[in-house]
Every structure is written in structure tokens, then in C-alpha cells.
């Protein structure tokens, strides 16, 4: 195994232990019970966003786009709002968490396939059009969910608002089993398909010439992205630029184009950033909920840097 992968795995284990056991105090059982689900959530989100971003970037053959920039998370929030609107706040709260999440993921996947399937299936070369479409979809989804929430009920507005801000501290433990299973399953499939993703990255004409079932793989990849973004958004809310940081670092650290190495590296980088960041902010700076803001800021700066350097591919 790669030395860097081993080193990062070790670092992640240490970081997780530090997050769990640092400054436990006398009521340690209670504190551990609070920390463990949060840690699990962060690991899930880090891995989900890492893999979603890598697969998505392979899909559009571009290293600047993330599913979030293309409006995937806004789509997820729209689904959630539509559910609140359709069922009423009472009905929404009455649904079991996993049923709710299941419905959202299914709708999200279908919508993503309809909206982005044709766009990506043609192996579009036109990055500017892709970005613009994504930005427009994003704004559309966001305003439509705002509109829906307002016309139904003022209480619904609060429910939607709460879901629309990213926070790594507000992870809902009850969601962990279902999101965890989905997330781990999907990542497993992604790793298994790694060699085929390598071929997909060569672009439609070459991939087809080499006999890859291109269009089917695009659909499968899109489903994986939709599921992973749903998982991450359900757990912590929308985060746009985090994935960009992760994929940029993973590419730097691996120096290889092989997904079998890129995906594990991205997962490690994503998890490490979240766990170390959260440990720092929570224990040393005493700031509970600012990590997402800082990550977004750093990611945004990185995004600008990529654009200005002309690294569109």
C-alpha cells in the first residue's frame, strides 16, 4: 500500500482518538455518548463528500465543479421542503426518519437523473455551459423551496431554514444507521468500479471505443453522487466548496489518475479535515459551529484560485 495512504490512515486514527478522549472529565460515559455519534457523522460526511466530488469530477471531466456547485444539495433541500409542504409540519414530523430519508433519496436520484443525465450523458465539452446550468438550477431550487415554505405555513419556513444551514454539530444520531449503510454501500460500489471510472475519465469517444458501457456507467455514477450528496446534506446541511478542497488535495497527494488510489486518498483527506478541524474549534477555540464557515471560506478561496489559474480541467 502507498506510504502516504498508510500515514494518513494512522493520522486519522489518532485524530479520531483525540476527538473522542481529549478532556473527557468525570462524566465520561455521558460525554462519550455525545461525541461518538458526532464523530461517526463527521466520518460519514467526509467520506461521502469526498467520493461524490471525485466521481462527479470524473463524470464531467473537470476539476473545478462539485455536485454542490451544480445545485445537487439545493435539489435535496427542495425535496425536503416539498415533503414538508406536501405532508404539513405535523405529517412531516410524524414520518419515521428512515422513511423520510428514503423518500428524499429516491426523489433526489430521479430528479438528478432527469436534470443532469442528458447534460452529462452527451459528454459535454462545454464547461461554461455546464457551470451556468448548475448555477441556474441551484438558484431555481433554492428560490422554489423558499417559495414553497412561505406559501404553506410559517412554521414550515422555520423547519426549512433549520435544514438550510450547514452545521457539523447538529448531526442527528437517529439518522446514522440508514445514512451509514447507504454511504458505505455506495462507496464500496465506487471503489469496486474504480478501474471503469478511470476509463470513463477518458471521455465518451475513447471510453466507447474501448468498449465501456458508457451511458450506463454515467447513470450509475450519477445515482451514486445523488445518494452521497443526500447523505451529507441530510446529516450536516449544504456545504458547497468542501469537496473542492478535498479533491484538490487528493490529486496533489496521489499524483496518479487511478481512482483505486484517488478515492481512498480523498476519503482520508475529507475525514481528516473534518475531525481535526472540529477538534480544534470545539476544544481549543471553544467555538462550536464555526467549522463549516471556515471550511467554506477556505474552499471558496481555493475555487477562485483554480478559476484564476485557468485550471478549468
Amino acid at each position: 500500500m502507498d506510504r502516504r495512504l498508510t500515514a494518513l490512515t494512522g493520522a486519522l486514527v489518532v485524530a479520531c482518538a483525540a476527538y473522542l478522549f481529549w478532556g473527557l472529565g468525570p462524566r465520561w460515559q455521558f460525554i462519550l455518548g455525545l461525541r461518538a455519534p458526532k464523530l461517526a457523522g463527521m466520518l460519514l460526511v467526509g467520506a461521502a463528500i469526498a467520493v461524490a466530488t471525485m466521481v462527479f469530477q470524473t463524470l464531467c471531466r473537470n476539476r473545478v465543479l462539485t455536485p454542490q456547485i451544480m445545485g445537487f444539495d439545493a435539489l435535496y433541500i427542495l425535496m425536503q421542503t416539498a415533503l414538508v409542504a406536501g405532508l404539513g409540519v405535523g405529517g412531516y414530523a410524524g414520518l419515521s426518519l428512515s422513511a423520510k430519508f428514503g423518500i428524499e433519496v429516491v426523489f433526489m436520484t430521479l430528479a438528478a437523473l432527469m436534470l443532469f443525465g442528458t447534460l452529462l450523458g452527451r459528454g459535454t465539452q462545454d464547461i461554461a455551459r455546464l457551470v451556468l446550468t448548475g448555477v441556474i438550477f441551484g438558484v431555481m431550487f433554492r428560490s422554489f423551496s423558499g417559495f414553497l415554505a412561505r406559501i404553506i405555513d410559517p412554521n414550515a419556513f422555520a423547519v426549512v431554514q433549520a435544514a438550510s444551514f450547514a452545521s457539523f454539530t447538529a448531526i442527528e444520531p437517529a439518522l446514522l444507521p440508514v445514512t451509514g449503510a447507504l454511504c458505505i454501500g455506495t462507496i464500496g460500489v465506487a471503489l469496486w468500479m474504480a478501474p471503469r471510472l478511470d476509463v470513463l475519465a477518458l471521455g465518451q469517444p475513447i471510453a466507447v471505443s474501448l468498449g465501456l458501457a458508457h451511458d450506463r456507467l454515467v447513470i450509475v455514477a450519477l445515482i451514486m453522487v445523488a445518494v452521497l450528496v443526500s447523505v451529507a446534506t441530510a446529516l450536516v446541511g449544504p456545504i458547497a466548496f468542501f469537496g473542492l478542497l478535498v479533491s484538490g488535495l487528493a490529486h496533489e497527494l496521489t499524483g496518479s489518475a487511478r481512482h483505486a488510489r484517488l478515492l481512498p486518498m480523498a476519503i482520508l483527506v475529507g475525514c481528516l479535515m473534518l475531525v481535526i478541524g472540529q477538534t480544534l474549534f470545539e476544544r481549543f477555540l471553544g467555538l462550536q459551529s464555526t467549522l463549516s464557515v471556515v471550511i467554506e471560506f477556505a474552499g471558496g478561496v481555493f475555487f477562485l484560485w483554480l478559476l484564476l489559474k485557468g485550471r478549468m480541467r
Binding site: 471531466r61 475519465a201 477518458l202 471521455g203 475513447i206 471505443s209 468498449g211 490529486h251 480541467r313
Partner: peptide, 16 residues
């Protein structure tokens, strides 16, 4: 793919 190889006019790769 084992019967024919085709190389099109323009090729844009997504990976380095």
C-alpha cells in the same frame, strides 16, 4: 472493442 478501434478527431481527457 476487440473488433475495431476508433480514434475521433478531437479528444479531451478528464485525467492527467
Amino acid at each position: 472493442a476487440r473488433l475495431m478501434a476508433i480514434l475521433s478527431q478531437t479528444n479531451t481527457l478528464g485525467s492527467r
